[in-house]
């Protein structure tokens, strides 16, 4: 990895890149940075929090969705299939707005909702952000896991059954780990896609990284600087995710295929 960067051509490119960064730092307007740095860090935290929470929840939902489609009876497979198709066939932005504004326009018609204990949470924007991002991730990942579950070799399951393993043990010890392993290469990609989806929740008043950059732009009318920094921040996060998944993939038993 490091050695690949030491070819003269790449050194020149790195040099040019460094020159570009220096040029940006010197000739562009960064005077806003100190004032907005605390807000930006909060935003970064919200972005990462949303990413992690919705991926974990989404994955937990994706497992039954994938399973239902791969081996479930038709009355489970069909709804799971429809769910995945609808989620994958419509823009996430529309889903977010449907949940936030659609439900928001319904609530006033039911006074008991406002009196319920859930109301303080339902007033906030984040439950809708988490819900829509979770459903979206589950829809895409459910499709991936469908293939993954179907690809686990029958012989292994039969062998486990022959050993008299109970069903839930077969699932957790053999089926699920193998499905996850075969889905792992796509998981990294899906995670980056999810990262790229998080800015959409800025449109429902969540103040994450993108919203902070938007606020800088709106307050100071400086266009490029916050956007460039924002793009750089996402590049770094995506890079960390990629390296993380590469590390996970590198560990664990090598499978003979």
């Amino acid at each position: 990895m490091m050695r690949a960067m030491l070819i003269p051509r790449r050194l020149i490119m790195l040099g040019l890149f460094a020159a570009f960064v220096v040029w940006c730092a010197v000739s562009m307007d960064w005077s806003w940075l100190p004032r907005y740095a605390p807000l930006a860090l909060d935003g970064l935290w919200v972005t990462i929090w949303l990413l992690v929470v919705t991926i974990v929840l989404g994955f937990m939902l994706a497992v039954p969705l994938g399973l239902a489609q791969a081996i479930g009876p038709w009355y489970l497979a069909v709804p799971a299939r429809v769910f995945c198709t609808v989620i994958r066939g419509t823009p996430l932005l529309l889903q977010i707005w449907l949940l936030y504004y659609g439900l928001g326009s319904l609530f006033p018609q039911f006074p008991w909702i406002r009196e319920s204990e859930l109301w303080p949470y339902l007033r906030q924007a984040w439950p809708y952000a988490v819900l829509s991002l979770t459903l979206s991730y589950a829809g895409y990942e459910g499709e991936v896991l469908r293939g993954a579950f179907a690809s686990v070799q029958k012989g292994q399951i039969e062998a486990a059954r022959a050993f008299g393993m109970p069903r839930h043990k077969i699932f957790f010890r053999i089926w699920l780990p193998q499905a996850i392993r075969s889905a792992l290469p796509t998981l990294g990609g899906e995670t980056i896609l999810q990262l790229k989806a998080t800015p959409l929740v800025a449109t429902i008043t969540i103040v994450e990284l993108y919203a902070v950059a938007g606020r800088v732009r709106q307050d100071t009318f400086i266009i490029y600087e916050p956007l460039l920094l924002l793009a750089a921040a996402y590049l770094v996060i995506a890079g960390i995710i990629t390296l993380g998944f590469r590390w996970i993939e590198g560990r664990g038993p090598r499978m003979s295929r």
Binding site: I192, L195, K196, A197, T198, P199, L200, Y210, A213, I223, Y224, L227, L228, L230, A231, Y234, L235, A238, G239
Partner: peptide, 18 residues
């Protein structure tokens, strides 16, 4: 690499202004 790692929304704004 850049295009696939940066959110479309951010790219759209940058490309639009640029």
């Amino acid at each position: 690499t850049v295009v696939r790692a940066v959110p479309e929304l951010v790219l759209i704004l940058i490309l639009y202004y640029v």
